[in-house]
Amino acid sequence: MRAHTCDLDENKIAEAIVGKQIVALERQAQERPASGPVAAATRLQLKDLASKGKLSPVSFNLRQGEVIGIAGLLGSGRSELLHAIYGSDKYATGSVIFDGQPIARNTGAAVRAGIGMVPEDRMAQGLVPDFEIWRNTTLPALGGVSVLNSLPVAERERERGWEAIRMLSIKASSPDILVRDLSGGNAQKVTIAKWLFSDVKLFLLDEPTAGIDIGAKTDILRLIRQLASLGKSVIVVSSEFEELLAVSDRILVMRDGACVAERNTFETSEHELLLLAGGQSAASAGAHHELASH
């Protein structure tokens, strides 16, 4: 696509760059096996997971190395589903079975089992803003930087911070930078990095690319696929359906607190997902998708 410089502004340039990067990710998605990681063991089983007034009973399985996207409009129950899985919704009912074992309904039990959550409000819920990069990065896994699992070693903690900076290309001159002084995208990378040094097997990501710059957005989407390639499982919520199509193996559509449809990524489109999220029946949305694909 060519355009005269006088016709461009920063937003149009950014949109063009992001579009190109997302298209490349979608092409990679199309090249993944259509059946997904079907041979992999089941990692997560939800059985009638619900929360009164917020979430209708939801049941599904998630395999090792699989990425499930959660599509839906604002207020559809997407975030509520993640909080119910993670145990931060104390009113949630139903069963969460992880690697064959039921998990008690609290966040401590979820973390011990190997579940990490990156919440939508990263500064209020995911980070300690007045702590440095290294301190935020080491908080969930102090054992790896401590003597006898009890006495943190400052040198090891700072090296962990440097490792996080290198692994996720965090734009910071030092791990001593306070996370409140980072850009939104780099702060989000710290929120994810803190789980990478723990034995996390399931990542719950709530709007991980919201409000961040172009480069960080693509880095995080690629990281999701990298985690899957390492056998990690991921559930990702995003308002950007195009991004879900780029990284997910399957997509669940939420509406009014209920899961109303499930689609394999290679069998759906952004248009169909929007129709389903907006209230079209699965049959009607599927018919629109068939027409659009011909």
Rank of each mutant, 00 (worst) to 15 (best):
A3C: 13
T5S: 15
D9M: 14
E10V: 15
N11C: 13
I13V: 15
I13C: 14
P33M: 07
V38Y: 12
V38A: 14
T42Q: 14
A50M: 08
S51W: 00
S56P: 00
E66R: 02
I70D: 00
G72M: 02
L73P: 03
L74N: 12
G75V: 05
G77R: 01
E80P: 04
G94C: 09
R105T: 03
N106V: 08
R112I: 07
P119K: 03
D121I: 12
D121F: 11
F131M: 12
W134C: 06
S146F: 04
V147I: 09
V147H: 13
S150N: 10
R158D: 07
G161Q: 03
E163M: 10
A164D: 05
R166Y: 09
I170N: 07
K171G: 10
V179L: 11
D181N: 14
G185W: 00
A187L: 06
A193H: 05
K201A: 12
K201E: 10
L202Y: 02
I214L: 15
D219C: 09
I220S: 06
V234Y: 02
I235W: 04
S239P: 08
E240T: 07
F241L: 15
V247I: 14
R255G: 00
A258R: 03
V260D: 03
S269L: 11
S269V: 10
L273D: 01
L276F: 09
S281T: 12
A283F: 11
L291D: 11
